[in-house]
């Protein structure tokens, strides 16, 4: 039997000093997994500036987090691959969790492989499902080959590490209060060098960009939107129904939209109530990021486009006729 026990989850602190929602999604999932691991503890690790952890105490308690290992230091106010990975590796060496979960944000995807390499343990990236198998191992399922094939991956070493993208798991609205123990951890980094210095940060001005996670309606454009004018039309349409704009990789590569609003395998995963795919052929690389939407409307003039295979409502027609007409009637 392994000496490793408990589930440790990385609580990412955003630049605005709140905890990234993917953490809470992971906690709820971990609570489920814990039931199959004889009630293993669900614990968190956080790196932040001094005094910040206690402001999250209520959130940790309501979510049923047993222990929070906190590393607080001015030097940890911003993410640093060097500091964070070193401290996380040291912590894992001491508390020996059987599972380590990290949100697959930009930061998580920078941190996780570094930590897995240093610990000499396996890591499964961008999982869409986590379960415990009959042997008590973490069974992590992830898409491969552009989302066309799903693979369930097991890990021979401990901790078993996995990253999961935001929005893949739903936050459970029911709370399960526990008295969270906050464990202050010593920050031994004086001998380390932070090799990457942040000299500037510009928040992306376009406000539609960061709304994808919480958007109720998303209007997404693909290659079929043809050019910038097409995307202008898309934005107008989105504006008229209070929707957020997204794009496929092809549209991003055509320079029609920024990478930050890309949905799909190499972009974001979204789950709005309504997803309106305009001029999107439905390559699996795209659909893997949006197929969890509650209702998918596809508008495409090619009735054989694969997008219709995953849509709930398929409208065969020209977006350049339908959207302007929509704006005329209802805009």
């Amino acid at each position: 039997m392994s000496e490793y026990s408990g589930i440790l989850i990385y609580a990412q602190v955003t630049r605005e000093d709140y905890i990234h929602t993917v953490f809470f999604e992971l906690v709820d999932k971990a609570k489920e997994l814990s039931k199959k691991l004889n009630g293993a503890e669900v614990n968190a690790v956080i790196f932040c500036r001094p005094g910040l952890t206690r402001t999250f105490t209520e959130a940790f308690q309501n979510k049923g987090v047993n222990k929070v290992y906190c590393f607080e230091d001015e030097k940890l106010a911003n993410y640093s691959t060097d500091y964070y990975s070193k401290l996380l590796v040291d912590l894992v060496g001491v508390i020996k969790p059987e599972i380590l979960l990290i949100g697959a944000t930009n930061q998580g995807r920078d941190l996780a492989p570094r930590v897995s390499g240093a610990l000499g343990t396996g890591l499964t990236a961008d999982c869409i499902e986590l379960d415990i198998n009959e042997k008590g191992q973490l069974a992590a399922t992830r898409p491969t080959f552009g989302g066309q094939l799903m693979a369930t991956i097991l890990c021979k070493t401990y901790p078993q590490m996995a990253t999961v993208r935001p929005n893949v798991f739903k936050v459970n609205q029911q709370d399960c209060f526990v008295q969270t123990e906050i464990v202050s951890c010593p920050v031994n980094i004086s001998y380390l060098k932070n090799n990457v210095e942040i000299v500037d940060f510009k928040k992306t001005i376009d406000t539609v960009i960061n709304d994808l996670d919480s958007a109720e309606i998303i209007v997404a454009g693909g290659k079929g939107m043809k050019n910038e004018k097409g995307f202008e039309l898309l934005k107008k349409f989105a504006g008229s129904i209070g929707a957020t704009v997204a794009a496929t990789r092809t549209a991003v590569e055509m320079g029609l939209a920024p990478q930050s609003i890309q949905v799909g395998q190499t972009g974001k995963t979204v789950k709005p109530r309504v997803y309106i795919a305009c001029g999107i052929s439905g390559a699996i690389q795209h659909t893997v990021g949006m197929s969890g939407s509650e209702h998918i409307i596809a508008i495409n003039n090619d009735e054989n486009a694969p997008i219709f295979d995953i849509a709930d409502t398929g409208i065969v027609g020209d977006v350049f006729e339908i959207l302007p007409a929509y704006l005329n009637y209802h805009g």
């Binding site: 066309q148 094939l149 693979a151 991956i153 097991l154 197929s291």
Partner: peptide, 15 residues
């Protein structure tokens, strides 16, 4: 390799 594929299956849409 610490990780290995235990099974692989096709991703099928439910819409």
């Amino acid at each position: 390799s610490p990780t290995y594929v235990s099974k692989a299956f096709r991703n099928v849409s439910t819409h």
